[in-house]
């Protein structure tokens, strides 16, 4: 991942994870795990972290970052066993705060900044992706459930397969606002229905 100028900075490259993900070598930089008190330095650091978090989440198709879930904080993303450094939950929170400011993440309103959705794609992108998929597969003018979109047999090869319900809802809201689709109330979230009217958005 690191290009030549980064390699010149002299940090060792970690081996790729089992999932095939490769951290950039800045991930082995000890100060990367300390919240920098200098504003300009911290901005650079937070930018680097958000890039790595988004890459990691996209690679592993993850959506939710929960600070109360110890598996998240102990994950290799935030815990570098090689240099024995680990991000503190407060620092992760600060990083997510920065990501929220840029629109790369959103706090779950009820969680008091403990849970966040990481937008490795923007809701607008998801909306466009879903609607184009619907029209391409000729599913417009019929009602689809949310379950069919996220977990249906037809969408299995799509990037939004297993999409997080909150992200899906956000994307649908965007489509409804544009007048591309209409939602129908169901018994539960997965039985919510959506009908697409015409192509394009």
């Amino acid at each position: 991942m690191s290009n030549t100028s980064n390699a010149a900075l002299g940090l060792g490259q970690s081996p790729a994870l089992a999932s095939g993900f490769q951290f950039p070598s800045i991930h082995n930089f000890p100060p990367f795990y300390t919240l920098q008190p200098t504003a300009s330095t911290w901005k650079n650091q937070a930018d680097l972290w958000s890039t790595i978090v988004i890459r990691y989440y996209r690679h592993h198709r993850l959506y939710l970052l929960d600070l109360d879930d110890s598996t998240i904080t102990n994950e290799q993303l935030f815990n570098n066993l090689r240099i024995n450094r680990k991000l503190k939950p407060e620092t992760i929170q600060a990083i997510v705060d920065e990501m929220v400011k840029k629109g790369d993440a959103e706090w779950d309103a009820t969680s008091k900044k403990r849970r966040a959705i990481i937008y490795w794609r923007k809701p607008e992108d998801w909306a466009a992706m879903i609607s184009s998929w619907v029209f391409e597969s000729g599913l417009n003018n019929s009602i689809l459930t949310y379950y069919e979109i996220a977990h249906g047999d037809n969408s299995e090869d799509q990037e939004f397969y297993n999409i997080h319900p909150t992200v899906l809802q956000k994307s649908m809201d965007i489509l409804v606002k544009r007048g591309v689709a209409a939602t129908f109330q169901g018994a539960n979230f997965e039985e919510m229905g959506v009908k697409f009217f015409r192509a394009g958005a």
């Binding site: 290009n3 100028s5 980064n6 900075l9 940090l11 950039p24 800045i26 930089f29 000890p30 100060p31 990367f32 920098q36 300009s40 330095t41 650079n44 650091q45 930018d47 680097l48 890039t51």
Partner: peptide, 12 residues
């Protein structure tokens, strides 16, 4: 401990 500020130089 203090390190060189690589964040400023890093090209992502």
């Amino acid at each position: 401990k203090f390190f060189d500020n690589l964040f400023a130089k890093w090209e992502i």
